[in-house]
Design a protein around this nucleic acid. Structure first.
Lengths: 349, 349
DNA sequence: TAACTTTTTGTAAACGCTTACAATAGTGAT
DNA sequence: ATCACTATTGTAAGCGTTTACAAAAAGTTA
């Protein structure tokens, strides 16, 4: 019959006013202490901090950001979470964000362009201060809106055509070029190429790099050796399978636009009875952790994924601090990591 | 000299008052329309919706939740993002959450127990309405606090000792039991076992299932065949390697506590010169997508990961709606998926 | 010590929304 | 018409912070 005090509701959390009362100052002063305002007397500051400590006070984020403070939340839009690609990037993101004391609100498009439009809610609800878009599929659809609203965002592994966006990517063209060149040096001339989702800029750049290298090596570009994938292992498997069945003389090497596709290609090749690298060489792109775990260890073009995440966040935070910064475009260097999936080809018998 | 109107600030977003003004009603009415309150005249509702449409109005989340409404945000604590395990679970989570119109704020502990304590901020800042903990490493440290605050949370693939938590898991014991039994049926008696992080309940359950099956098959439990892993591929590789070098008569089969460990074991075995499954059989646990992509395709105990995510969210939402519900504990059925990584062993020659 | 400065602190008005309570409009019965 | 209800809408008080502005306190200088 006495449930006036401790009803089964949640325990009330201490507010800034509680702290103010306990420490005998106004809430404004508490706010100032907490936000590191300069002109607060040392003794007052201590008194307040003590009360904070004692009450276990933590500022209410919503109230803070409502009142014009910052929410310290950034939105992260990813295609999906089922491989290490995004995972590795987020590692960099987390590290950088932890330093800045920000939280992440996650949006997974599940590779569905329409879903990306939930960017609307991400922004419109005013919760996030900025947006990080990892390899979005259809950015052109909404980037204008973001810019128009002057909303800070950074594109990772994707670019928009207007060059008005902040972009963090790798040297995709060069990476593909170098890999192709390497294969050629090993004696390969029939080099197949598995593309990524061609809606993504990086995929196109890699394709161009591949073609340029062929041209440079005096190898004719044969369209039937270029098969369109979508960065997924499953697809890589399927299209490689089809390729192997249809290509008259088999390719002796396959360059995949990402590691996942390369894994798929490896499976298909093996299923077709080819040994790797004896019968066919395979190169991936990304160098996700698994690349060095599969058998044989995958030769691949490393993208500094973690670093890309870090740099992206750095730029985003800069942008949030001072929206005046002109858009930046950073291309981080790729690097060919040679492991066990490629082999010098015997001169034609 | 005229920058009074369009200074380079962000374009002001429409508020509920704008909508009210445009549609000629009070903001309270707008609020009611938006929250689906029953007693609003049809015509009014339409008028409001029109204005909403026209202004592109989206409610400000902070204000809403500050005012006592709901934030529609749930916190998701994951160990890391670099494999499909969490990815697959989140697929279920997303699906269920999309239905409920909730967003996710992501915390990655990076497998660092101390980081898990950021639960504090997750809760204390009042942003999230509930917490989903995926295989947390040290839940005992803070679960009490959560309960004390009556804060809704659900544990996935982990359990606390007090049985006071909502838990969603798979039938770990049975899964391991069945897998072991299967190996025995194929003639294996020297079956090694790679454990998961023993801080996690599921890992312990699987270990027990393995042991129970051995006992049931009249095979002595040999401790030297049980090696402690941590669910990571790298570790699986390393400890298997050591195992193969030290075990006098080699095991003829390895049961790993998750697919990642199994992949590591496969690599180690192969490196040791063993063929899979001819020389050694391997079984995983989880059935993440890759399991069917590796070569040979991995026989494994399937956990309905996606479903687990869904169920977990369902329970969490229930809990949020009515904190009165008693804690639930759901164990979803595992299933042995037989693929190509196991082989009947020849009778001892 | 008066007259200024400069620090330090308090007051109160937002921020955008929900919601208890009060008021108004509508409806059918009388 | 009038009354008694009920359906609908408006008013205004928060929610927990930040922050412009004003007031008070402490220091300086003459």
């Amino acid at each position: 019959m006495n449930n006036e005090e401790n009803s089964p509701k949640k325990k009330q959390r201490a507010t800034i006013n509680d702290v103010a009362r306990v420490s005998g100052v106004s809430n404004a002063t508490v706010s100032r202490v907490l936000s590191g305002y300069e002109f607060v007397r040392e003794t007052t500051r201590n008194r307040v901090m003590e009360a904070v400590e004692h009450l276990g006070y933590v500022a209410n984020l919503q109230a803070r950001s409502l009142a014009g403070g910052r929410s310290r939340i950034i939105g992260l839009l990813v295609p999906n979470l089922d491989n290490s690609y995004v995972g590795t990037i987020t590692q960099g993101i987390d590290r950088e964000l932890a330093r800045a004391g920000c939280d992440v609100i996650l949006y997974t498009s599940h590779r569905h362009p329409a879903n990306e439009s939930l960017y609307v809610s991400a922004i419109a609800n005013g919760l996030t201060e900025g947006l990080l878009l990892i390899a979005p599929l259809a950015p052109t659809t909404y980037l204008d809106v973001l810019r128009e609203q002057n909303f800070p965002y950074v594109l990772v592994d994707q670019a928009d055509d207007t060059d008005n966006s902040n972009v963090v990517e790798a040297t995709n063209w060069q990476g593909a070029y170098e890999a192709t060149h390497y294969l050629n040096q090993l004696g390969h001339t029939r080099i197949a190429f598995i593309t990524g989702s061609l809606a993504v800029r990086s995929a196109i750049d890699r394709l161009h790099g591949y073609k340029a290298a062929l041209v440079n090596c005096n190898i004719p570009v044969r369209e039937e050796l270029i098969i369109e994938g979508d960065y997924q292992q499953q697809t890589g498997y399927e299209i490689t399978r089809r390729l192997l069945q249809s290509a008259k003389p088999l390719p002796t090497a396959i360059l995949a636009s990402n590691d996942l596709s390369a894994f798929g290609a490896m499976d298909a090749a093996r299923e077709y009875g080819l040994r790797i690298p004896d019968d066919i060489s395979i190169i991936g792109f990304d160098d996700i952790p698994q690349a060095s775990f599969v058998y044989p260890k995958l030769t691949t073009v490393r993208q500094p994924l973690e670093l890309m995440g870090q740099v992206a966040i750095k730029i985003l935070l800069e942008q949030i601090e001072g929206p005046s910064h002109p858009p930046q475009r950073v291309a981080l260097a790729t690097q060919l990591v040679i492991r066990d999936s490629c082999r010098r080809i015997d001169p034609p018998e």
